[in-house]
Simulated scan of single mutants.
Amino acid sequence: MPAVRLVLTSHTSPVVCTGSEIAGQVICHYVSTTDVRSIKVWLVGKEKIEWRQGKTTIKDSNKFLNLLTCVYEQGQPPRIEFPFTFRLPHDYPSSFEDEYGKVTYKLKVVVDKKWSLDDKLKHRLTVLSPIDLNRLPYLQTPVAWRGQKGMFFFCCDPGTIDLAVKLDKRSFVPGEVLTVQIQCDNMSKTNVLSFVVKLKRKITFKKVSSWGNSERTSVLEVARAHVSSGVGAHGSTIRTTFLRVPTNVEIPNFCRCLMLEQSWILSTTAILSGFSFNLKVRGAISPGHVPYTEGGTSQNADAVNSAFTSGDTSTQRDEEDPPPPYSECV
Rank of each mutant, 00 (worst) to 15 (best):
L178H: 04
V173F: 02
S218I: 03
N134Y: 07
L199S: 12
P130T: 07
F205Q: 02
L220Y: 03
M151P: 08
F154P: 03
L139Q: 12
N213M: 05
E221V: 11
E215V: 01
I161G: 01
V227N: 02
S210C: 11
P130W: 04
S171D: 06
L178V: 04
V219C: 13
G147S: 10
V227F: 00
D162T: 04
E176C: 09
M151Y: 04
A164G: 07
M151T: 14
N213G: 10
R146C: 11
H123D: 12
S129T: 04
F153K: 07
E215H: 10
Q140Y: 11
T179P: 00
Q183E: 09
D132G: 05
V173I: 09
F152M: 08
C155A: 13
A144N: 11
S228P: 08
S188I: 00
G230M: 13
L139G: 09
N186Q: 01
G147F: 00
R216K: 15
V165R: 06
V165P: 06
E176G: 10
G212Q: 04
K202Y: 03
K149P: 08
Q148I: 12
F172E: 02
W145V: 14
T179W: 00
W211Q: 09
D168E: 14
D157R: 08
V197T: 15
K200G: 15
V222T: 15
E215T: 06
I131M: 02
N134S: 06
R216V: 02
L193T: 15
V173N: 06
T190V: 14
F205A: 01
R224Y: 01
R216F: 02
S188T: 02
A225G: 07
V197H: 05
T160W: 01
R146Q: 09
G212N: 04
K189T: 10
V219W: 01
C156N: 13
V127C: 07
N134L: 05
N213E: 06
L193F: 05
K202F: 03
N186R: 03
G212A: 01
K122N: 13
G159K: 01
S129C: 04
V165F: 10
D157A: 10
P137Q: 02
A144G: 06
R201M: 08
F153G: 04
T190R: 07
L121M: 13
S188E: 00
L128M: 09
Q140H: 14
K166T: 14
C184V: 09
R124H: 14
S229W: 00
P142F: 06
V197Q: 10
N191G: 12
V143Q: 11
L220W: 00
F195E: 05
K189W: 07
D168Y: 09
G150L: 12
R124N: 15
V192G: 06
V165N: 09
V196E: 07
R216G: 03
T190H: 01
R216T: 00
G150Q: 14
Q183H: 09
V192N: 05
L199R: 15
C156H: 10
L178R: 06
W145T: 13
S129D: 07
M187D: 14
D157M: 05
G147R: 04
V227T: 12
L178E: 00
R201L: 03
P130A: 07
F195Y: 11
V165E: 06
Q140N: 15
C155Y: 12
